[in-house]
Amino acid sequence: MKTLTIVLTDGPYISEYAEIACKLAETALKQYQVNIFLYLDAVHIPKGGQNPSFFTNAGELFSGLAEKGAVIRACARCAAARGYFPEEEIGGSNCRDYFPGIKITSLYELSEMLTKSDRVISLSR
């Protein structure tokens, strides 16, 4: 099976990229393996307890993707800088502030994902 990797650097709501990535991933998942790497501000996307007034909850969207089989990882350095820390794994996540299914890993994971991908999409401002 072919693999698609999506790299994100924007936080939720500031741009449409989290949502676009979600739609892309949703469709791609029907045929392909999908990886999403959350870099820089994108590590905010899977934060639990979001309550946007007019937008779809980005964290829920991504948790749903993970449930459907997308591999979603966040950069450890970027996450720590923004107050998210890896701990013991519960419910497919190693961060208590994150939605289930999304893990904090080292940046080397990005390199791994890219190496094993057939297509890469980066969405960034």
Partner: peptide, 11 residues
């Protein structure tokens, strides 16, 4: 720079 540096491993 960081992403580029880690990618040197294999690409």
């Amino acid at each position: 720079l960081n992403a580029a540096a880690v990618s040197l491993n294999g690409m």
